[in-house]
Design a protein around this nucleic acid. Structure first.
Lengths: 224, 224
DNA sequence: CGTGAGTTTGACCGAACTCAAATCATGTGG
DNA sequence: CCACATGATTTGAGTTCGGTCAAACTCACG
Protein backbone atom coordinates (compact mmCIF):
# COMPACT_ATOMS: atom_id res chain seq x y z
CA UNK A 1 0.00 0.00 0.00
CA UNK A 2 2.79 2.35 0.88
CA UNK A 3 4.42 1.73 -2.43
CA UNK A 4 1.24 2.02 -4.41
CA UNK A 5 0.56 5.39 -2.87
CA UNK A 6 4.05 6.66 -3.42
CA UNK A 7 3.98 5.61 -7.02
CA UNK A 8 0.76 7.46 -7.54
CA UNK A 9 2.01 10.65 -6.01
CA UNK A 10 4.51 12.06 -8.43
CA UNK A 11 1.83 12.54 -11.07
CA UNK A 12 -0.59 14.17 -8.70
CA UNK A 13 2.01 16.70 -7.79
CA UNK A 14 3.51 17.66 -11.07
CA UNK A 15 1.93 21.08 -10.95
CA UNK A 16 2.05 21.45 -7.19
CA UNK A 17 4.31 23.71 -5.13
CA UNK A 18 6.17 20.72 -3.72
CA UNK A 19 8.20 20.16 -6.82
CA UNK A 20 9.66 23.63 -6.76
CA UNK A 21 10.67 23.31 -3.15
CA UNK A 22 12.22 19.93 -3.47
CA UNK A 23 14.51 21.31 -6.10
CA UNK A 24 15.33 24.22 -3.86
CA UNK A 25 16.05 22.04 -0.87
CA UNK A 26 18.12 19.73 -3.00
CA UNK A 27 20.21 22.60 -4.31
CA UNK A 28 20.63 24.11 -0.89
CA UNK A 29 21.88 20.80 0.38
CA UNK A 30 24.34 20.19 -2.39
CA UNK A 31 26.31 23.43 -2.20
CA UNK A 32 30.00 22.45 -2.16
CA UNK A 33 31.66 23.09 1.15
CA UNK A 34 28.48 22.20 3.03
CA UNK A 35 29.32 18.58 2.86
CA UNK A 36 30.62 16.17 5.47
CA UNK A 37 31.80 12.61 5.62
CA UNK A 38 30.82 10.29 8.42
CA UNK A 39 32.42 7.00 9.37
CA UNK A 40 30.47 3.80 9.99
CA UNK A 41 28.39 4.09 13.20
CA UNK A 42 29.32 7.72 13.70
CA UNK A 43 26.62 9.92 15.17
CA UNK A 44 25.31 12.64 12.89
CA UNK A 45 23.09 14.19 15.54
CA UNK A 46 21.45 13.11 18.76
CA UNK A 47 17.91 13.54 20.00
CA UNK A 48 17.59 16.74 21.95
CA UNK A 49 20.48 18.50 20.25
CA UNK A 50 20.05 21.84 18.54
CA UNK A 51 18.73 21.36 15.03
CA UNK A 52 21.18 23.74 13.37
CA UNK A 53 21.34 21.80 10.13
CA UNK A 54 19.21 19.84 7.76
CA UNK A 55 20.85 16.88 6.08
CA UNK A 56 20.69 15.05 2.81
CA UNK A 57 22.26 11.70 2.02
CA UNK A 58 24.60 11.99 -0.95
CA UNK A 59 26.11 8.53 -0.66
CA UNK A 60 25.88 5.77 1.95
CA UNK A 61 23.06 4.88 4.32
CA UNK A 62 21.86 6.53 7.53
CA UNK A 63 19.60 5.27 10.31
CA UNK A 64 17.23 7.42 12.39
CA UNK A 65 16.27 6.05 15.77
CA UNK A 66 14.91 6.58 19.26
CA UNK A 67 16.41 4.98 22.35
CA UNK A 68 14.74 4.13 25.64
CA UNK A 69 16.51 4.72 28.96
CA UNK A 70 17.31 1.05 29.30
CA UNK A 71 18.95 0.92 25.90
CA UNK A 72 16.13 -0.53 23.81
CA UNK A 73 16.39 1.00 20.37
CA UNK A 74 13.79 1.49 17.68
CA UNK A 75 15.02 2.48 14.25
CA UNK A 76 12.30 4.52 12.59
CA UNK A 77 13.86 4.74 9.13
CA UNK A 78 16.85 4.03 6.97
CA UNK A 79 17.83 6.94 4.75
CA UNK A 80 19.27 6.37 1.29
CA UNK A 81 20.95 8.67 -1.22
CA UNK A 82 18.61 11.52 -2.06
CA UNK A 83 16.73 11.34 1.24
CA UNK A 84 16.51 14.45 3.41
CA UNK A 85 16.55 14.08 7.20
CA UNK A 86 16.89 16.08 10.38
CA UNK A 87 14.24 18.54 9.21
CA UNK A 88 12.44 20.04 12.21
CA UNK A 89 10.15 23.03 12.58
CA UNK A 90 11.37 23.35 16.17
CA UNK A 91 14.94 24.05 17.16
CA UNK A 92 15.89 20.64 18.55
CA UNK A 93 16.22 17.25 16.91
CA UNK A 94 13.52 14.84 18.01
CA UNK A 95 15.44 11.69 17.01
CA UNK A 96 19.02 10.60 16.56
CA UNK A 97 20.80 9.84 13.31
CA UNK A 98 23.90 7.72 12.71
CA UNK A 99 25.84 6.55 9.69
CA UNK A 100 25.14 2.92 8.83
CA UNK A 101 27.97 2.92 6.30
CA UNK A 102 30.59 5.53 5.57
CA UNK A 103 28.66 8.31 3.95
CA UNK A 104 28.74 11.70 2.38
CA UNK A 105 26.12 14.03 3.78
CA UNK A 106 25.10 17.37 2.37
CA UNK A 107 24.15 20.05 4.88
CA UNK A 108 22.00 23.14 4.81
CA UNK A 109 21.69 25.65 7.61
CA UNK A 110 18.33 25.09 9.23
CA UNK A 111 17.93 28.80 9.85
CA UNK A 112 18.44 29.55 6.20
CA UNK A 113 15.77 27.07 5.34
CA UNK A 114 13.45 28.39 8.02
CA UNK A 115 13.96 31.94 6.85
CA UNK A 116 13.32 30.93 3.27
CA UNK A 117 10.15 29.16 4.37
CA UNK A 118 9.00 32.20 6.35
CA UNK A 119 9.41 34.44 3.31
CA UNK A 120 8.42 32.07 0.56
CA UNK A 121 5.27 30.05 1.03
CA UNK A 122 6.26 27.68 -1.75
CA UNK A 123 9.34 26.77 0.26
CA UNK A 124 7.23 26.27 3.38
CA UNK A 125 4.83 24.04 1.48
CA UNK A 126 7.77 22.00 0.28
CA UNK A 127 8.98 21.44 3.82
CA UNK A 128 5.49 20.45 4.84
CA UNK A 129 5.34 17.97 2.01
CA UNK A 130 8.66 16.39 2.97
CA UNK A 131 7.51 15.91 6.55
CA UNK A 132 4.15 14.65 5.38
CA UNK A 133 5.74 11.95 3.24
CA UNK A 134 7.86 10.91 6.18
CA UNK A 135 4.70 10.66 8.29
CA UNK A 136 3.14 8.44 5.65
CA UNK A 137 6.11 6.07 5.72
CA UNK A 138 6.20 5.95 9.50
CA UNK A 139 2.48 5.16 9.69
CA UNK A 140 2.99 2.25 7.34
CA UNK A 141 5.77 1.15 9.66
CA UNK A 142 3.29 1.27 12.55
CA UNK A 143 1.19 -1.32 10.78
CA UNK A 144 4.24 -3.51 10.33
CA UNK A 145 5.27 -3.31 13.98
CA UNK A 146 1.79 -3.61 15.42
CA UNK A 147 0.16 -6.19 13.23
CA UNK A 148 2.61 -8.22 11.16
CA UNK A 149 4.36 -11.51 11.96
CA UNK A 150 8.13 -11.85 11.91
CA UNK A 151 8.00 -13.48 8.47
CA UNK A 152 5.86 -10.64 7.11
CA UNK A 153 8.13 -8.00 8.61
CA UNK A 154 11.24 -9.48 7.05
CA UNK A 155 9.49 -9.89 3.71
CA UNK A 156 8.29 -6.28 3.80
CA UNK A 157 11.79 -5.13 4.62
CA UNK A 158 13.35 -7.07 1.75
CA UNK A 159 10.76 -5.71 -0.65
CA UNK A 160 11.52 -2.17 0.55
CA UNK A 161 15.21 -2.77 -0.09
CA UNK A 162 14.67 -4.25 -3.52
CA UNK A 163 11.91 -1.88 -4.61
CA UNK A 164 14.35 0.15 -6.69
CA UNK A 165 16.33 -2.81 -7.94
CA UNK A 166 15.49 -4.17 -11.38
CA UNK A 167 17.23 -7.51 -11.20
CA UNK A 168 16.28 -8.28 -7.61
CA UNK A 169 19.93 -8.42 -6.64
CA UNK A 170 20.62 -6.16 -3.69
CA UNK A 171 23.28 -5.57 -1.10
CA UNK A 172 22.17 -5.17 2.48
CA UNK A 173 24.15 -2.28 3.94
CA UNK A 174 23.03 -2.69 7.55
CA UNK A 175 23.78 -5.33 10.19
CA UNK A 176 21.31 -7.89 11.48
CA UNK A 177 21.07 -5.85 14.65
CA UNK A 178 20.00 -2.78 12.66
CA UNK A 179 17.44 -4.85 10.80
CA UNK A 180 16.16 -6.31 14.07
CA UNK A 181 15.84 -2.87 15.65
CA UNK A 182 14.01 -1.60 12.58
CA UNK A 183 11.58 -4.52 12.52
CA UNK A 184 11.02 -4.84 16.27
CA UNK A 185 12.57 -8.32 16.38
CA UNK A 186 15.75 -9.94 17.66
CA UNK A 187 18.76 -10.70 15.49
CA UNK A 188 18.13 -14.42 15.94
CA UNK A 189 14.60 -14.16 14.63
CA UNK A 190 15.74 -12.07 11.67
CA UNK A 191 18.46 -14.59 10.87
CA UNK A 192 16.18 -17.60 11.24
CA UNK A 193 13.54 -15.99 9.04
CA UNK A 194 16.06 -15.23 6.32
CA UNK A 195 17.36 -18.81 6.51
CA UNK A 196 13.84 -20.11 6.12
CA UNK A 197 13.19 -17.92 3.08
CA UNK A 198 16.40 -19.29 1.59
CA UNK A 199 15.43 -22.92 2.31
CA UNK A 200 12.06 -22.23 0.68
CA UNK A 201 13.78 -20.94 -2.43
CA UNK A 202 12.28 -17.48 -2.15
CA UNK A 203 15.63 -15.74 -1.84
CA UNK A 204 19.31 -16.59 -2.18
CA UNK A 205 21.95 -15.31 0.25
CA UNK A 206 25.33 -15.55 -1.48
CA UNK A 207 26.79 -13.68 1.48
CA UNK A 208 25.04 -12.43 4.60
CA UNK A 209 25.00 -8.93 3.10
CA UNK A 210 23.63 -9.81 -0.31
CA UNK A 211 20.19 -11.01 -1.28
CA UNK A 212 18.76 -12.15 -4.56
CA UNK A 213 15.01 -12.41 -4.92
CA UNK A 214 14.56 -15.69 -6.74
CA UNK A 215 10.81 -15.72 -6.32
CA UNK A 216 9.39 -12.25 -6.07
CA UNK A 217 5.83 -13.52 -6.25
CA UNK A 218 6.33 -15.60 -3.11
CA UNK A 219 7.87 -12.58 -1.40
CA UNK A 220 5.03 -10.25 -2.26
CA UNK A 221 2.59 -12.81 -1.01
CA UNK A 222 4.50 -13.20 2.23
CA UNK A 223 4.66 -9.55 3.18
CA UNK A 224 0.87 -9.18 3.60
CA UNK B 1 10.03 11.29 26.37
CA UNK B 2 7.18 12.26 24.12
CA UNK B 3 5.58 14.13 26.91
CA UNK B 4 8.74 15.80 28.04
CA UNK B 5 9.31 17.12 24.55
CA UNK B 6 5.78 18.28 24.11
CA UNK B 7 5.88 20.08 27.40
CA UNK B 8 9.02 21.86 26.36
CA UNK B 9 7.67 22.93 23.03
CA UNK B 10 5.03 25.52 23.79
CA UNK B 11 7.66 27.84 25.26
CA UNK B 12 10.02 27.43 22.35
CA UNK B 13 7.30 28.43 20.00
CA UNK B 14 5.71 31.34 21.70
CA UNK B 15 7.13 33.73 19.18
CA UNK B 16 7.01 31.32 16.27
CA UNK B 17 4.69 31.38 13.27
CA UNK B 18 2.99 28.24 14.45
CA UNK B 19 0.94 29.98 17.05
CA UNK B 20 -0.58 32.34 14.55
CA UNK B 21 -1.47 29.53 12.22
CA UNK B 22 -2.99 27.35 14.85
CA UNK B 23 -5.33 30.14 15.72
CA UNK B 24 -6.15 30.59 12.07
CA UNK B 25 -6.78 26.90 11.53
CA UNK B 26 -8.84 26.75 14.67
CA UNK B 27 -11.00 29.66 13.54
CA UNK B 28 -11.37 28.26 10.08
CA UNK B 29 -12.53 25.01 11.55
CA UNK B 30 -15.01 26.48 13.93
CA UNK B 31 -17.01 28.61 11.51
CA UNK B 32 -20.68 27.81 12.17
CA UNK B 33 -22.29 25.82 9.42
CA UNK B 34 -19.08 23.95 8.70
CA UNK B 35 -19.79 21.53 11.44
CA UNK B 36 -21.01 17.95 11.35
CA UNK B 37 -22.09 15.33 13.79
CA UNK B 38 -21.02 11.73 13.51
CA UNK B 39 -22.52 8.72 15.22
CA UNK B 40 -20.51 6.09 17.07
CA UNK B 41 -18.42 4.05 14.61
CA UNK B 42 -19.42 6.21 11.65
CA UNK B 43 -16.74 6.73 9.03
CA UNK B 44 -15.53 10.30 8.65
CA UNK B 45 -13.32 9.54 5.67
CA UNK B 46 -11.61 6.52 4.19
CA UNK B 47 -8.07 6.01 3.01
CA UNK B 48 -7.81 6.88 -0.68
CA UNK B 49 -10.76 9.23 -0.71
CA UNK B 50 -10.43 12.80 -1.92
CA UNK B 51 -9.13 15.02 0.85
CA UNK B 52 -11.66 17.81 0.33
CA UNK B 53 -11.79 18.76 3.98
CA UNK B 54 -9.66 19.13 7.04
CA UNK B 55 -11.25 18.24 10.33
CA UNK B 56 -11.10 19.30 13.92
CA UNK B 57 -12.58 17.52 16.89
CA UNK B 58 -14.97 19.77 18.75
CA UNK B 59 -16.38 17.11 21.06
CA UNK B 60 -16.07 13.36 21.21
CA UNK B 61 -13.20 11.09 20.19
CA UNK B 62 -11.99 9.96 16.76
CA UNK B 63 -9.68 7.16 15.70
CA UNK B 64 -7.35 7.21 12.68
CA UNK B 65 -6.33 3.85 11.30
CA UNK B 66 -4.95 1.76 8.47
CA UNK B 67 -6.36 -1.61 7.47
CA UNK B 68 -4.65 -4.54 5.79
CA UNK B 69 -6.39 -6.52 3.06
CA UNK B 70 -7.12 -9.35 5.47
CA UNK B 71 -8.77 -7.03 7.95
CA UNK B 72 -5.97 -6.48 10.42
CA UNK B 73 -6.28 -2.97 11.71
CA UNK B 74 -3.73 -0.63 13.23
CA UNK B 75 -5.00 2.49 14.90
CA UNK B 76 -2.34 5.18 14.59
CA UNK B 77 -3.94 7.76 16.84
CA UNK B 78 -6.94 8.75 18.88
CA UNK B 79 -8.01 12.34 18.34
CA UNK B 80 -9.47 14.39 21.18
CA UNK B 81 -11.23 17.75 21.30
CA UNK B 82 -8.98 20.39 19.81
CA UNK B 83 -7.04 17.94 17.64
CA UNK B 84 -6.88 18.56 13.90
CA UNK B 85 -6.88 15.60 11.51
CA UNK B 86 -7.24 14.70 7.88
CA UNK B 87 -4.66 17.31 6.92
CA UNK B 88 -2.83 16.26 3.74
CA UNK B 89 -0.63 18.14 1.33
CA UNK B 90 -1.81 15.77 -1.42
CA UNK B 91 -5.37 15.46 -2.56
CA UNK B 92 -6.25 12.06 -1.09
CA UNK B 93 -6.51 10.85 2.48
CA UNK B 94 -3.74 8.47 3.43
CA UNK B 95 -5.57 6.93 6.39
CA UNK B 96 -9.15 6.41 7.52
CA UNK B 97 -10.96 8.15 10.35
CA UNK B 98 -14.01 7.04 12.31
CA UNK B 99 -15.95 8.33 15.26
CA UNK B 100 -15.19 6.44 18.46
CA UNK B 101 -18.04 8.19 20.25
CA UNK B 102 -20.71 10.47 18.91
CA UNK B 103 -18.87 13.60 18.03
CA UNK B 104 -19.05 17.09 16.69
CA UNK B 105 -16.48 17.76 14.02
CA UNK B 106 -15.54 21.13 12.61
CA UNK B 107 -14.64 21.23 8.94
CA UNK B 108 -12.56 23.48 6.75
CA UNK B 109 -12.28 23.24 3.00
CA UNK B 110 -8.90 21.79 2.23
CA UNK B 111 -8.58 23.97 -0.84
CA UNK B 112 -9.15 27.08 1.19
CA UNK B 113 -6.43 26.02 3.55
CA UNK B 114 -4.10 25.11 0.72
CA UNK B 115 -4.72 28.42 -0.99
CA UNK B 116 -4.09 30.28 2.25
CA UNK B 117 -0.88 28.33 2.70
CA UNK B 118 0.24 29.08 -0.85
CA UNK B 119 -0.26 32.82 -0.30
CA UNK B 120 0.75 33.13 3.32
CA UNK B 121 3.96 31.44 4.38
CA UNK B 122 2.98 31.75 8.04
CA UNK B 123 -0.05 29.59 7.30
CA UNK B 124 2.10 27.09 5.45
CA UNK B 125 4.54 26.92 8.35
CA UNK B 126 1.64 26.28 10.66
CA UNK B 127 0.48 23.34 8.58
CA UNK B 128 4.01 22.01 8.55
CA UNK B 129 4.18 22.28 12.30
CA UNK B 130 0.91 20.41 12.79
CA UNK B 131 2.12 17.54 10.61
CA UNK B 132 5.49 17.56 12.30
CA UNK B 133 3.94 17.18 15.74
CA UNK B 134 1.87 14.30 14.44
CA UNK B 135 5.06 12.70 13.13
CA UNK B 136 6.64 13.06 16.54
CA UNK B 137 3.74 11.31 18.21
CA UNK B 138 3.70 8.51 15.66
CA UNK B 139 7.43 7.91 16.05
CA UNK B 140 6.96 7.54 19.77
CA UNK B 141 4.24 5.05 18.97
CA UNK B 142 6.74 3.13 16.85
CA UNK B 143 8.88 2.63 19.92
CA UNK B 144 5.87 1.37 21.83
CA UNK B 145 4.86 -1.14 19.17
CA UNK B 146 8.37 -2.29 18.33
CA UNK B 147 10.03 -2.47 21.70
CA UNK B 148 7.61 -2.46 24.60
CA UNK B 149 5.96 -5.35 26.44
CA UNK B 150 2.20 -5.64 26.76
CA UNK B 151 2.33 -4.29 30.31
CA UNK B 152 4.38 -1.30 29.20
CA UNK B 153 2.07 -0.61 26.29
CA UNK B 154 -1.02 -0.58 28.46
CA UNK B 155 0.71 1.57 31.08
CA UNK B 156 1.82 4.05 28.40
CA UNK B 157 -1.69 4.18 27.03
CA UNK B 158 -3.23 4.87 30.43
CA UNK B 159 -0.69 7.59 31.10
CA UNK B 160 -1.52 9.16 27.74
CA UNK B 161 -5.18 9.13 28.64
CA UNK B 162 -4.66 10.59 32.09
CA UNK B 163 -1.96 13.07 31.11
CA UNK B 164 -4.44 15.92 31.12
CA UNK B 165 -6.38 14.73 34.12
CA UNK B 166 -5.56 16.30 37.47
CA UNK B 167 -7.22 13.80 39.77
CA UNK B 168 -6.20 10.68 37.86
CA UNK B 169 -9.85 9.81 37.31
CA UNK B 170 -10.57 9.24 33.65
CA UNK B 171 -13.21 7.73 31.45
CA UNK B 172 -12.09 5.44 28.65
CA UNK B 173 -14.12 6.37 25.59
CA UNK B 174 -12.96 3.51 23.37
CA UNK B 175 -13.63 -0.21 23.42
CA UNK B 176 -11.10 -2.88 24.36
CA UNK B 177 -10.86 -3.72 20.67
CA UNK B 178 -9.89 -0.15 19.83
CA UNK B 179 -7.29 -0.19 22.59
CA UNK B 180 -5.94 -3.52 21.36
CA UNK B 181 -5.68 -2.25 17.78
CA UNK B 182 -3.93 0.87 19.00
CA UNK B 183 -1.42 -1.07 21.11
CA UNK B 184 -0.83 -3.96 18.72
CA UNK B 185 -2.31 -6.49 21.17
CA UNK B 186 -5.45 -8.61 21.47
CA UNK B 187 -8.45 -7.64 23.56
CA UNK B 188 -7.72 -10.54 25.90
CA UNK B 189 -4.21 -9.33 26.62
CA UNK B 190 -5.44 -5.78 27.17
CA UNK B 191 -8.10 -7.02 29.54
CA UNK B 192 -5.73 -9.31 31.44
CA UNK B 193 -3.14 -6.56 31.78
CA UNK B 194 -5.72 -4.14 33.15
CA UNK B 195 -6.92 -6.80 35.59
CA UNK B 196 -3.38 -7.36 36.78
CA UNK B 197 -2.81 -3.63 37.30
CA UNK B 198 -5.98 -3.58 39.35
CA UNK B 199 -4.92 -6.59 41.44
CA UNK B 200 -1.58 -4.88 42.07
CA UNK B 201 -3.36 -1.78 43.33
CA UNK B 202 -1.95 0.46 40.62
CA UNK B 203 -5.34 1.36 39.19
CA UNK B 204 -9.00 0.92 40.05
CA UNK B 205 -11.64 0.03 37.49
CA UNK B 206 -15.04 1.01 38.92
CA UNK B 207 -16.50 0.15 35.52
CA UNK B 208 -14.78 -1.16 32.43
CA UNK B 209 -14.83 2.34 30.96
CA UNK B 210 -13.46 4.20 33.95
CA UNK B 211 -10.01 4.13 35.45
CA UNK B 212 -8.59 5.74 38.54
CA UNK B 213 -4.85 5.90 38.94
CA UNK B 214 -4.32 4.94 42.55
CA UNK B 215 -0.56 4.72 42.24
CA UNK B 216 0.76 6.97 39.56
CA UNK B 217 4.36 6.29 40.56
CA UNK B 218 3.95 2.58 39.87
CA UNK B 219 2.33 3.41 36.53
CA UNK B 220 5.11 5.72 35.44
CA UNK B 221 7.64 3.10 36.37
CA UNK B 222 5.77 0.45 34.43
CA UNK B 223 5.55 2.31 31.14
CA UNK B 224 9.32 2.39 30.55
C1' DC C 1 -36.58 -9.78 32.69
C1' DG C 2 -34.22 -11.58 28.21
C1' DT C 3 -31.09 -10.66 24.60
C1' DG C 4 -26.72 -9.58 22.69
C1' DA C 5 -22.61 -7.04 22.54
C1' DG C 6 -18.66 -6.16 25.23
C1' DT C 7 -15.58 -7.78 28.69
C1' DT C 8 -13.25 -10.97 31.67
C1' DT C 9 -11.23 -15.33 32.82
C1' DG C 10 -9.31 -19.93 31.95
C1' DA C 11 -6.67 -23.56 29.50
C1' DC C 12 -3.73 -24.39 26.06
C1' DC C 13 -0.59 -23.41 22.23
C1' DG C 14 2.87 -21.50 19.49
C1' DA C 15 5.76 -17.68 17.76
C1' DA C 16 9.35 -15.19 19.15
C1' DC C 17 12.70 -14.50 22.91
C1' DT C 18 16.73 -15.95 25.76
C1' DC C 19 20.79 -18.23 26.52
C1' DA C 20 24.46 -20.82 24.59
C1' DA C 21 27.41 -22.72 21.22
C1' DA C 22 29.07 -23.28 16.60
C1' DT C 23 30.25 -21.19 12.30
C1' DC C 24 31.65 -17.60 9.25
C1' DA C 25 33.94 -13.30 7.89
C1' DT C 26 37.20 -9.74 8.34
C1' DG C 27 41.12 -7.58 9.29
C1' DT C 28 45.79 -7.65 11.60
C1' DG C 29 50.41 -8.82 12.77
C1' DG C 30 53.94 -12.02 12.12
C1' DC D 1 50.56 -15.15 2.58
C1' DC D 2 49.00 -17.42 6.53
C1' DA D 3 47.36 -17.89 11.41
C1' DC D 4 44.90 -15.97 14.64
C1' DA D 5 41.69 -12.80 17.00
C1' DT D 6 37.51 -10.48 16.94
C1' DG D 7 33.06 -9.47 15.79
C1' DA D 8 28.98 -10.86 13.07
C1' DT D 9 25.92 -14.36 11.85
C1' DT D 10 23.75 -18.74 12.17
C1' DT D 11 21.93 -22.61 14.57
C1' DG D 12 20.18 -25.14 18.56
C1' DA D 13 17.56 -25.97 22.99
C1' DG D 14 14.55 -24.46 26.15
C1' DT D 15 11.40 -20.83 28.00
C1' DT D 16 7.96 -17.35 28.05
C1' DC D 17 4.87 -13.96 26.65
C1' DG D 18 1.12 -13.10 24.22
C1' DG D 19 -2.24 -15.31 21.03
C1' DT D 20 -6.13 -18.59 20.22
C1' DC D 21 -10.14 -20.85 21.41
C1' DA D 22 -13.78 -21.38 24.57
C1' DA D 23 -16.70 -20.33 28.33
C1' DA D 24 -18.53 -17.35 31.92
C1' DC D 25 -19.85 -12.95 33.25
C1' DT D 26 -21.66 -7.99 32.98
C1' DC D 27 -24.39 -4.61 31.57
C1' DA D 28 -27.14 -1.67 28.65
C1' DC D 29 -31.21 -1.77 26.15
C1' DG D 30 -35.57 -3.27 24.40
Amino acid sequence: MLYAQEERRPEQFVRSPRTALQIEVAEGLVVPGFKMNFARDEEIYGAGEEADFVYKVISGVVRAHLILDDGRRQISAFLFPGDVFGLEPGDTHTASAEAVTECEIGLAKANTLRRAAAEDSMAALGLWDLTSRELLRVREHLMLLGRKSAAERVASFLLELTARSKDGKVSIPMSRLDIADYLGLTIETVSRTLSKLERDGTIALPTSRQIILTNRAAMSEAHA
